[in-house]
């Protein structure tokens, strides 16, 4: 069951990921990216990260991507015009990408030869309660710093996007 779920959602993630890169229209890319994030949320659940799976859907798919979609719709961004690419890229791009991925996979398999097998329910540490306990004890300072970061980001966004008052 674990294998089937992993393969199904990994396939969806990769197909959507390829789609993000290949689609010429930003809206199609955005929808594919939402697909990637949704399937990653399921994989997080398989890895026992319940809170992160929920946060992934709420924050990433539910808030950040809506913002992207909103801006694309607001600017009415059209299709990207195809530019002439060099022959070298057209012929060598794909084989080189596959080679790179092959090298990386080999490296990963070499570096973690006896890594554990992922079984659903084997790791119970990702519940909101345990997550919150560590977040508000060990990681309290980084947490507070990120809140300051968010505040700065809000201010920056408002300053950048406001109308010029003459």
């Amino acid at each position: 069951m674990d294998v089937i779920l992993f393969l199904a959602f990994a396939t969806i993630a990769v197909v959507c990921g390829v789609n993000v890169v290949l689609q010429t229209h930003p809206i199609s890319s955005a929808v594919s990216l939402i697909g990637v994030m949704g399937s990653l949320a399921v994989l997080y659940l398989l890895l026992g990260a319940e809170f992160i799976a929920a946060a992934q859907v709420i924050v990433y798919a539910g808030a950040i991507m809506v913002l992207f979609l909103f801006v694309i719709m607001l600017l009415n961004a059209g299709e990207e015009t195809r530019r002439g690419r060099s022959r070298l890229v057209q012929f060598l791009g794909l084989p080189l990408l596959v080679t790179l991925l092959g090298l990386f996979s080999y490296l990963v398999l070499r570096l973690f030869p006896n890594a554990s097998h992922v079984r659903f329910g084997a790791f119970q540490g990702g519940t909101p309660a345990k997550f919150g306990r560590v977040l508000f004890t060990e990681f309290l300072l980084p947490f507070e710093v990120t809140s300051v970061l968010i505040l700065i980001a809000i201010l920056g966004a408002i300053v950048l996007a406001r109308k010029e008052i003459e």
């Binding site: 709420i58 539910g62 909101p128």
Partner: peptide
Amino acid sequence: NIGVLFILA
């Protein structure tokens, strides 16, 4: 055990 978050999501 993440019911409320599930509804929000």
